[in-house]
């Protein structure tokens, strides 16, 4: 794996970080690196320790779960400017519950999770902004998951009730 350092300018150009102060943007830059990935490459795997929070720069990443006897099932894709791997900064989900795989070549911004948590603890202004973004990501994921659970496009005739 080939991590590349990150410039402050790159961090500044990311819309998600627009509401951070310059000081905080610098803090993020220092703990971040660029993680290029290739088509079909595993970025992380189910069961890995969650040590990174990612932000998609370009490309497309699929989140997959392996179902024994049924193979890999793709349950969500992540697009540029979206966050990935939010479990990296939670205690409850300390390990990856899904596998992330490149759908095509691309790049991720990789933020060191332990360092980010420490910085957030030390500076609650930064902590609030970061947690606010993470909460939004989780809320979006939850809504999408609920809608997928409804299986709203399934064949209604298979479960149609006449009363």
């Amino acid at each position: 794996m080939d991590f590349q350092p990150v410039s402050f300018e790159l961090i500044r150009s990311i819309p998600l970080f627009a509401d951070l102060s310059i000081q905080h943007q610098k803090v993020i830059a220092e703990m971040s690196s660029i993680r290029p990935f290739q088509e079909n490459e595993e970025i992380f795997h189910e069961g890995d320790t969650s040590d990174c929070l990612y932000l998609m720069l370009d490309g497309r990443v699929a989140l997959e779960i392996h179902i024994p006897n049924r193979g890999r099932s793709r349950i969500l894709t992540v697009e540029p400017q979206e966050m990935l791997g939010w479990s990296g900064i939670t205690d409850v989900v300390p390990r990856r519950t899904l596998t992330a795989r490149g759908v095509c070549d691309g790049r991720l911004l990789c933020i060191d999770a332990p360092k980010l948590i420490k910085a957030c603890e030390q500076d609650h202004d930064l902590g609030f902004v970061v947690m606010h973004h993470v909460a939004n990501v989780i809320a979006g994921r939850l809504m999408a998951t609920r809608m997928q659970l409804l299986d709203m496009f399934s064949d209604p005739s298979s479960e149609a009730r006449h009363g």
């Binding site: 793709r74 349950i75 894709t77 697009e79 759908v103």
Partner: peptide, 10 residues
């Protein structure tokens, strides 16, 4: 499945 190159979501 893994053959799908497009988006997954709602």
């Amino acid at each position: 499945d893994s053959n799908w190159q497009g988006q997954v979501g709602v």
